[in-house]
């Protein structure tokens, strides 16, 4: 039995149910880094290459935190999880593709990385094969791998179903692993619905976005995110665009934004964008143009290592005032 560390950043917020269940069911112990703190952020900023975006730096901080306490660091090379986009060209953002190399070069004294290439769009590059490779690294038999993968997929499916019932991803994760009872999303006392779109690691990490979701909830806002939509609902939006973007999480954010723009229940859209993110320079502009076209109130919030709560709060308060005045006028 090994101890496998999973950094609490990037795809963690989206694929944890599969990863953790799979590894646990293989008979190993999973340890996760604690929620982002100033110490983790500072460490990441110090260790990572200077030009990286803030989420990548943060990942380095989480990885460094785990390094001493695990036998393996789980850092798969995420290339693609589906055949999608023009000529099936969709991948994860380039930084995800190079993540294991970046981490290995930047951090000293790392345990061996499980850096299996996940490239499901390739013929013969299925999840069975990727799971098999991970199992081999951890000394498990093909039968064990097959069973663990099935359970992992089931956990992942359960997670998505919970999200699609309107439960925020972090609550859904609690439910998947701790069996915590989840209450259906409240509608009591909430007069405004806001769609928060963006990368899971920007939306669900309260440290890096200065507690955006909590601020919204305190102000009586019902929150919806792209992760509450099914793949079908999301992908349907693709036909509205002249061309598909190249990146998985970017496509999800854009589709989510487009979906909510035509949803009459949604009063406004907040796009959480990560500082120095290359794809976001396109995603944000695209959403801004579409929001204008749909006459949907739109607020971009850029997060970086200096983001203070004050800046986020001022913008959010002004945005909510704007929506409430508008409603009162109607």
């Amino acid at each position: 039995m090994y101890t496998v560390g999973i950094p609490r950043s990037l795809a963690y917020f989206f694929f944890l149910p599969l990863w953790k269940t799979f590894i646990t069911e293989l008979g190993h112990e999973v340890i996760e880094s604690p929620p982002t703190s100033r110490a983790i952020l500072d460490r990441g900023v110090k260790e990572a290459v200077n030009d990286a975006c803030i989420p990548i730096k943060l990942y380095h901080g989480h990885a460094a935190h785990l390094a001493e306490n695990c036998d393996f660091l789980f850092c798969p090379r995420l290339v693609s999880v589906r055949k999608h986009g023009d000529f099936g060209s969709e991948t994860f953002c380039p930084k995800f593709l190079g993540l294991p190399d970046m981490v290995r070069l930047a951090l000293k004294d790392l345990p061996p990385l499980i850096d299996t290439r996940i490239d499901l769009k390739q013929p013969g590059g299925g999840s069975q094969e990727a799971a098999g490779e991970i199992g081999l690294r951890l000394g498990n038999s093909p039968a064990q791998v097959k069973r663990a993968l099935r359970l992992g997929m089931a956990a992942q499916g359960y997670f998505h179903r919970l999200c699609q019932q309107g439960i925020l991803a972090d609550d859904a994760l609690q439910a998947v692993f701790n069996g915590e009872k989840i209450y259906p999303p409240q509608s009591h006392g909430q007069d405004i619905t806001i769609a928060v779109v963006g990368y899971p690691y920007a939306i669900y990490d309260p440290y890096i976005n200065a507690g955006l979701l909590k601020i919204l909830q305190q102000q009586g806002v019902r929150i919806v995110t792209q992760d509450m939509l099914s793949d079908r609902e999301l992908n349907r939006q693709d036909s509205k665009l002249p061309k598909t973007l190249f990146w998985y999480f970017s496509n999800r954010a854009v589709y989510g934004g487009l979906h909510f723009m035509s949803d009459r229940q949604v009063d406004g859209i907040i796009h959480v964008t990560a500082f120095a993110c290359g794809p976001d320079s396109m995603v944000d502009r695209l959403l801004e143009i579409e929001a204008k076209r749909h006459a949907t109130p739109y607020l971009p919030i850029a997060v970086d290592e200096h983001t203070g709560e004050a800046g986020v709060r001022t913008r959010v308060e002004a945005f909510l005032d704007m929506l409430r005045y508008k409603r009162r006028r109607r």
Binding site: Y298, A302, H306, G311, R315, A318, F319, D321, M322, K326
Partner: peptide
Amino acid sequence: QDGIVTDFAMNTV
């Protein structure tokens, strides 16, 4: 528009 804020932006860093 018509006395109601429809859009705004603030400088960042």
